[in-house]
Amino acid sequence: MIKFTSVTKKYKDVTPLENFSMDIAAGETAILSGRSGSGKTTILALAAALTRPTSGNIEVNSKQTAKLPEEFASLFRRESVGIIFQNYNLMPNLTTLDNVTLPLLPTKIPFRQQRERAFALMEKLGIADKAKTIAGRLSGGEQQRIAIARALINNPPVVLADEPTSNLDAKLTENLLEIFAGIKAEGRTLLIATHDKVVTESGIADKIIRTEL
């Protein structure tokens, strides 16, 4: 489902990834762990086809994403992956509902159906009562749940999360792990980049992948 074969990613003067391989099967949950700067975010960006490798092959959801031209890459992202960014990347001036339905904007799904889907997800994540509130005014934990709802709105088979617990206290971390267990139970492939021991040791992962520098 997510398969990297001898992937190298070079920037001008750093090579965060060299000859990196991994294989995550469909429905598996994997944790990427490693020191800061060891290339975790880079791996997620490559898996989401947000950037291209310098060399090597990447297959996500049975698609060779390393070679996708940009138009196809954006279509792939829309259909196949949900991304929970480290700093959430919400639109702070839009309401919760608008943030959640944002990925459906370029699709032909009718507006009513978009709202129904969004409310079902917000209900599940406990933010339905904040639907009409401006996202920038919500607490960190609430904003994160918006980010999760937005990542799941297009019903993606692959979910990528970057340091999802970095801004959360123990209680919210607990909550988040439950949400992840739910995502896992729905049969989605989940890849979490983290250096939080609580997540690593929670037993949610089928597999722990270490990135070394």
């Binding site: 074969t5 001898s6 291209r52 490798p53 060399s55 092959n57 390393a66 070679k67 031209p69």
Partner: peptide
């Protein structure tokens, strides 16, 4: 060689684009 995943091929793909 489209099936190749080397740095050279990727660079070439970018250039052709």
């Amino acid at each position: 060689d489209f099936s190749n995943t080397s740095e050279k091929q990727y660079l070439l793909e970018k250039q052709t684009y």
